[in-house]
């Protein structure tokens, strides 16, 4: 492809003491693509995205952002480069309003004399508008996040990340706790965000969810990648087998043409 990847991780290894959580994983994210990262429990998905978002420092390997090599010292570094992560359960505070959640940590301020106040008027208007763009119609911006469905909460978190300048959006199992309808809402949100040119890393162990929106698929198995496949090059069944690391493994490797 002509585009330079937004972010590129090459041969990432991560050791926790004697545990080798990642043994050489590579992945790149292009603008406007949804890159699905699949794998069974304990495969190393969370460890990998934590490396990508600056939480862990890789034991070995290189990270490039816009083609330039970088080292993330903290999640802040990654955030400043536009790499945002939406964690499944640590994103929203249910008792707080949508607006308060949306702006948490970056509250817009207005000054009155020597004092500075939370500018609720601006905050509410922007929140309503951003939510509406994501297809969520709020009753009012001071509605508590707790009244939203799980899928809608994910969407608020995604909208927040995008509004604050995410170029790479990492979603850690956003659909794992959701029902069918809510899942389709989140998948629709992913599609919307992708169309704005943001690159998405979508972590899941549900192959059907991945097939619904994915442009490329990378499967992790016990800390190794079995290669990256493009949409149309691989079937649901094949992906499923790869995740399980089944008998057809050797056969599949040839069809992927990636490194094992």
């Amino acid at each position: 492809m002509a585009d330079t990847p937004l972010i590129e991780l090459i041969d990432i290894e991560k050791h926790f003491g004697s545990v080798i959580a990642l043994a050489g994983v590579s992945l790149s994210v292009l603008p406007g693509e949804c890159h699905c990262l699949l794998g069974d429990n304990g495969a190393g998905k969370s460890t990998f995205i934590k490396t990508m978002s600056g939480v862990h420092k890789p034991t070995r390997g290189t990270i490039r952002v816009d083609g330039k090599e970088v080292v993330f010292e903290s999640p802040r570094d990654a955030m400043e480069m536009g790499i945002a992560t939406v964690y499944q359960d640590l994103a929203m505070i249910p008792l707080m309003s949508v607006t308060r959640n949306f702006w948490m940590g970056r509250e817009p301020k207005k000054r009155i004399g020597p004092f500075s106040f939370f500018d609720f008027k601006t905050a509410n208007a922007v929140t309503m508008e951003e939510m509406r763009r994501m297809g969520i119609h709020l009753r009012e911006p001071d509605q508590a996040v707790g009244t939203l469905s799980g899928g809608e909460r994910q969407t608020v978190a995604i909208a927040r990340a995008v509004y604050f300048g995410a170029r790479v959006l990492i979603l850690d199992e956003p659909t794992s706790a959701l029902g069918v309808r809510q899942t389709s809402n989140v998948l629709a949100t992913i599609d919307r965000v992708r169309k704005t040119g943001v690159g998405i890393v979508f972590i899941t162990h549900n192959v059907r969810h991945a097939m619904a929106v994915g442009d490329r698929f990378t499967v992790l198995n016990r800390g190794k990648t079995l290669g990256t496949a493009k949409r149309g090059e691989i079937s649901t069944e094949e992906l499923q087998d790869m995740m399980a690391g089944g008998a057809e493994l050797a056969e599949l490797q040839s069809s992927l043409g990636g490194t094992v």
Partner: peptide
């Protein structure tokens, strides 16, 4: 009415979520 007030709510509502966004 203030940013700090939002941080008070956030710290008590879910300290980890608040830390994640830089509170």
């Amino acid at each position: 009415k203030t940013q700090f007030g939002n941080w008070i709510f956030a710290s008590g509502g879910d300290a980890q979520a608040a830390r994640n966004v830089g509170v």
